[in-house]
Design a protein around this nucleic acid. Sequence first.
DNA 1: GTGCATCTTTGCAACGTTACAAACATAGGG
DNA 2: CCCTATGTTTGTAACGTTGCAAAGATGCAC
Lengths: 360, 360
Amino acid sequence: MNASASAQGKRPTVKDVAEIAGVSWATVSNVLHDHPNVRAATRARVEAAIEQLGYQPSSAGRELRGAPSRLLALAIPDIESPYFSHLAHAIISYAESLRYTVLINVTGGRINRERLAVRAYSERSVQGTIFSPLALELDEVEALRGGFPIVILGEHLREGRIDHVAIDNVTAAQELTDHLISTGRRRIAFMGYQPHSSAGTGDLRLQGYRQSLANAGIDLDDRFIIETDHYTHQEGEARSRQMIADGLDVDGIVCGNDLLAVGALRQFRLLGVRVPEDIALVGFDDTPDGRYCWPSLTTISPNKALIAKSAVDALIARIDDADRPPSQIVVPHSLIVRDSSATQIRDRVARGPSRVAETG
Amino acid sequence: MNASASAQGKRPTVKDVAEIAGVSWATVSNVLHDHPNVRAATRARVEAAIEQLGYQPSSAGRELRGAPSRLLALAIPDIESPYFSHLAHAIISYAESLRYTVLINVTGGRINRERLAVRAYSERSVQGTIFSPLALELDEVEALRGGFPIVILGEHLREGRIDHVAIDNVTAAQELTDHLISTGRRRIAFMGYQPHSSAGTGDLRLQGYRQSLANAGIDLDDRFIIETDHYTHQEGEARSRQMIADGLDVDGIVCGNDLLAVGALRQFRLLGVRVPEDIALVGFDDTPDGRYCWPSLTTISPNKALIAKSAVDALIARIDDADRPPSQIVVPHSLIVRDSSATQIRDRVARGPSRVAETG
DNA sequence: GTGCATCTTTGCAACGTTACAAACATAGGG
DNA sequence: CCCTATGTTTGTAACGTTGCAAAGATGCAC
């Protein structure tokens, strides 16, 4: 109860506790670690002293002695966008259930910050990092990390020597596009091509979109592939305005994420374009603003809880064994059909295919 | 360049560096701290050894030696809602510019987690905590912290002995309500009364709403004060549905935050209630989904960057001097008028009053 | 060559913790 | 009463870092 007994400024140590309890440091340590060889009376005396002083073991001292810091880092481009804030929540929660603490490192997608995330975070005795790169090439990640445990969020085309966790973006984009085709759309655009990003997420989604069109025997108009620098509301607005200004004759758009779609939705509303009657819109990530906008947004919902669990588990496994074969984990997702792609108003959920694979 | 020279598993220490460079530990330490008394040639040799081993000083060793950890904590109810994720971003960024790292502690608003946030975080050698309480009473915070540096986010009615940072919620709510009255609304409800929360934010906003009505000579119908458990989309939907079902004759609603308003917006759309023609809606926090929904949402925009700066500055000042008088910092906000409260469609910004005060 | 001043380098101690082994009590059986 | 077995307690060392004082090296003037 009395935590302020040490009001003289210094933080209490085992030594102080030992003095109050009239025993040696070693006995205090034994009490703290539940060693069996402590008499009940002594234990009680020491515990009383701990309570009296409000003693908390120093993490620095423990670490120095060799105890693991139980500190992980999460390096993400931003913490403000719904996708990453939800993911951060899921990762923090799951890590906490394993008694790990997570340090968040916001890189802003800037390559120098990303380099630091990979290299310098061992400074704070972080044991490993879950990293969602935007600008940094995978080869450089591998070169920089130098044995430091890293798990990459996001699929990559090339099979690498680093652990990965992601949904199957190609299949997901294909499902979205298939869905639009199945509702009768034929002039479908893709918004979210990112030639300047190394992450490859946009590429993969574009690939799924292309595949779907090819399967349906629909010719691809190159002007239907819209480039974006960032996956934000602003870009969604700007690119959709441009599309209409350019006179693109489109009846459906696959957006790289929900933010782009919500931005487009607003812009189309301003321009008098009806969604879904004139143009159907679909997104990625299943964010709340896609669920609560009007019309509500058809989207791909990644299983974020499972992404979080897989990433943390993979990271801890990597920390425990630096030499284990790298795992490439694919997390299931689902297609959520809402109003933005429906002809009549309805809301149903279709489960997409899912698989979890580990390769050595 | 060669960071993997220490591939034998152990992390390199000053000792290892010293051995490679052919000097003593102390000389390595001198190089690291830019002591003047090191010969240029020796310095170069040591630096080469550091580079070769990829040596990083151990934070545990430094801390043990008495160096400050430069680690702050941010304890918030959640990291997923736009308000808190934006705030977290601002705080992390600003703290980083001062070379502090921020540890995020998600309490979920549960009282036990909040107690831990105040008390147990000194375990990880955190120097101080910025805390946004939801359930925990201020008196208990004061009792538990026992001298540990804490800055509270959120205004409180009673002048306390703890540092506070917040906007002037009473005035802000009053401005919102005044605005609705000025556009001809008379039957104005308040959604977001929170009798079960200790934080008082809802109370303060309700108070401003009451004051505005009183100033305008409008009688308050008690049924117009809507209780909510959480400030979420879901509650916004549920409460607004209930309002219509109850047959409440309302022409404007002041919502406790943007999420409630966006939820209400969607529900009204489903029920065929027109916004703003039938009911005007206003919110709090200026979140992106309020900016991008349709109609866009009139709201109070708190200066989050300044909240972040004030909170971090206050916390560091408290860390540096435990005995300084507590500061009560009021951060400016602005009223942003958008379509959800307009009769005709327009978008203008009105600056609200602002002040920064410190009391001892 | 010696003495002195200056410039470099180094040994030592301490921070708080814990594992280990050694020392110390206590009680019971011979 | 002594010896051993058992049960408790304690001293010591080490983890990686840094500040201090002392030791060592170097150069210069006499």
